[in-house]
Simulated scan of single mutants.
Amino acid sequence: MDRSELVELLSPEGLRLLDSLPPYEPASDVVKMVSDLRKAGHAPGLVSAVLSQSKLRAKAVPKFGEFASRMLFTEAGLEQATRLKVAALHAGRFAAAGLTRVADLGSGIGGDALALAAMDLIVTAVDADEVTAAIASFNLAPFPAATVVHSDAESFDLSECDAAWLDPARRTSGHSNTSRLNPEDYSPSLNFVFDLAKRLPIGVKLGPGHDRDQIPAEAEAQWISVNGALVEMGLWFGVLARDGIRRAALVLRPEGPAELTAAADSEDAAVVPLGEYLYEPDGAVIRARLIGDLARSLDAGMLSEGIAYLTAETVQHTPFATAFRVLDVLPFDEKKLRLALAERGIGTLEIKKRGVDIDPATLRTRLKLKGTTSATLILTRAAGHRVALLVERV
């Protein structure tokens, strides 16, 4: 969205038109909608802006729920925005620590600032992009204690704030591989962020796969997954970091939240022979390197050194892993595997893999599956040797 589109959208006519549209559906006849709106006398730029916003509002529902219908978005801002339930957890840290004046540096469309303002905190949302800052102003308008400033995060005056939240954006232009970014490849830079942590209590949102070598020793690192999808790593400093906790895995599921915490990475459990059950740890547990602690809580061991599968003779319910019953150990050879699956009439196959160089989609095609039975196949290593495990979810 450019500045002219935003001006069209924020006009009284634009907002009325946007709110009058029916909920966006993927099967909507967009061409007909454009034609109808043009026939009604609306300018082409306005029609384009409101239809784009209608689509973004529908796309935003998984993150913002019913609030999405009253917000404005940019494509990039929505992609980077924190889910509302996760943002509420962020805001809860600031409130619990007794902090009242928070700067949201690099606020984007204002997702985290919304949650902070809803906790009755005084929030200043700061973003360097003019259009994004204007959209944040619209989204935060219902909260009198929230203000938006169009400014560079690193030059913003923090003298009136007692804490800060930061969501650094990655500068990926010109990089073919962004898995190990330099601290200066972020905006604001991580050097600025970590220097700020020496002066002010702060929380920082980073990608869940962020280089662990860049985590400061004094920070609490918390990985969060939502319904099994790993969404972020949060770093907490000062009074926002919990005493004695440096590694945490928080899983948010419909039945409620659950968390594993530790003072440091946990030592892996011993490798044991394949048992009747297999556990696949949640991604938050894996990234937090708390697999060993999870294994010991389940009376389980590692299936193979360095591979995030656990095995045990008995099964226990846990929110931190998916449990499978091992039905059979099949030949790892592709031809023999095809025959074994055909004998069982398996026509639908979920393939999971760790520790082996195989593309599941390509393998599934080559297996030429036929039949009416569904199954799950795990390709991995047991005690260092490749294995193909036919399993069912517990």
Rank of each mutant, 00 (worst) to 15 (best):
D243L: 15
G244P: 09
S304Q: 10
P273D: 08
T318S: 15
A249L: 06
A308L: 07
R247D: 04
A321R: 04
M302L: 14
E259S: 07
I286E: 10
H317W: 15
Y279E: 06
A269S: 14
E255V: 06
V272S: 12
T318F: 09
P273R: 01
G306Y: 08
Y277N: 08
A264P: 03
G275L: 05
V285Q: 02
S304A: 12
T318M: 05
A262T: 13
D282K: 08
V285I: 08
D265H: 13
R289L: 14
E280W: 01
E276L: 14
A248C: 11
M302R: 11
I307K: 09
V272T: 15
L290R: 05
D293P: 01
Y279Q: 07
A321Y: 03
S266C: 03
V272Y: 09
P273G: 05
G292I: 05
R247V: 10
G292E: 09
Y279G: 06
G301K: 00
D282C: 06
L298C: 02
A269H: 08
A264Q: 14
A295Y: 00
E259G: 04
A284G: 07
L294C: 07
D299L: 05
E255H: 13
L310H: 11
M302P: 09
A269Y: 07
D293R: 03
G244A: 10
